[in-house]
Nucleic acid binder design. Sequence first.
DNA 1: GCCCAGAATGAATATCTATTCATTGCGAAC
DNA 2: GTTCGCAATGAATAGATATTCATTCTGGGC
Lengths: 216, 216
Amino acid sequence: MVKQRRSQIDSSKRRQILPKEIRRKQLIRATMGRIAEVGLSQVTLSAVTQKAGLSQGIANLHFDSKDNLLVETLKFVTDEYNLGLQQILSGTGYLSAQAKLQALVQFQFSRSVTEETKMAVWFAFYGEAKSRPTYQSICADSDRRAALGMKTLMTAVSEELGHDIDTAFVTDGYIALIDGLWLSLLLSPRKLSRVKAKQVVFQYLKGVFPLWSDVR
Amino acid sequence: MVKQRRSQIDSSKRRQILPKEIRRKQLIRATMGRIAEVGLSQVTLSAVTQKAGLSQGIANLHFDSKDNLLVETLKFVTDEYNLGLQQILSGTGYLSAQAKLQALVQFQFSRSVTEETKMAVWFAFYGEAKSRPTYQSICADSDRRAALGMKTLMTAVSEELGHDIDTAFVTDGYIALIDGLWLSLLLSPRKLSRVKAKQVVFQYLKGVFPLWSDVR
DNA sequence: GCCCAGAATGAATATCTATTCATTGCGAAC
DNA sequence: GTTCGCAATGAATAGATATTCATTCTGGGC
């Protein structure tokens, strides 16, 4: 009997040692994928590690517990989103507040943000947040930061256009609208495309800012 | 030793035989409660039956499987909502389309609809819907019916006010706004009250229907 | 080429939980 | 009051699945 020799073809089976950070990201991505595939309540470590092409015990090795892996997955998604958001909100290269707000809309409905697996993760955790303090605080934290920056932006737009309106309501409405559209995008992408979603948002903005005009 | 005699005080422990329908509703309510308390992914039959004050095996007796109990719970919540919704949409006692739309808003943010446990159930299943065909179809069915009726109503309002606008966008925006506000209501009721949520909706309606005026 | 720290593995374990079913006892019918 | 069908019980079972850990193997250092 010939002893099995590992070839290049078989390289997927070859054990490899990689930096902790690479492995963590690899597992987080696999977790996101599984959440999108089977739902948060059906995710098992064995399914995750299998998807990552790694062994059973590795999730506990790098994350200590399943619960922690899930928390880190949520953090990963929210952190990435917040980073992009803050980049726009604190950006200084825009010609006007209106232009900045338009960029924000483009970002919020960009392919990267509305990627199916990310939406799935987002709402999976929202669905559990009420009853899980850890998720709750991660989401709330993210939301609070976002709301603050958006309020400032809305006020800037309002002033720029010479309006005199309650931007608190406008902001609450804007945020709710985005969340609702994301949910539609997740549940029935057939019915509502990203393009259509953006049109709905601009319709909202034209409504609350009568003098709004799309900048180039 | 005196043989334990069941007293009135002890009546909670007394075995009782009740109609199937009563038991089913009792279990569904307990399930809703547990979902709100611990999240869909952490709901166990033993926690549910305990909350219902019944024995371990009763859920399987009346629902065959845990999965089925969950499905029936989702159906219960959506059916109740749809009933109220259709009652308004097909109602004929309103003075105008505007008045009907106002009634709709009142309904959608009524205490009964926005009850914490119901919102929790709603979003718990939304979070899983993507990956579970059964949930998906229940939610999609409910959504489709709602969307159709609302589109008609929006068109009626638009005509009533003599506007010439694309009511498809208005409807999509309206639905998304409601969903987003519900999510806020669930996740941070401190920040957004039901009253404030309604004000946000009316602000939206004033925006898209320039001639809108609150009736009475 | 050899060594070895520690990354990775995966079989074994412990725990948790849905489901079953033999037994109990309620309450409607007579 | 007695009987009896079947609702209800809850202990036992079976099946998952998170976690552990003894063992294997990699790749950098010498």
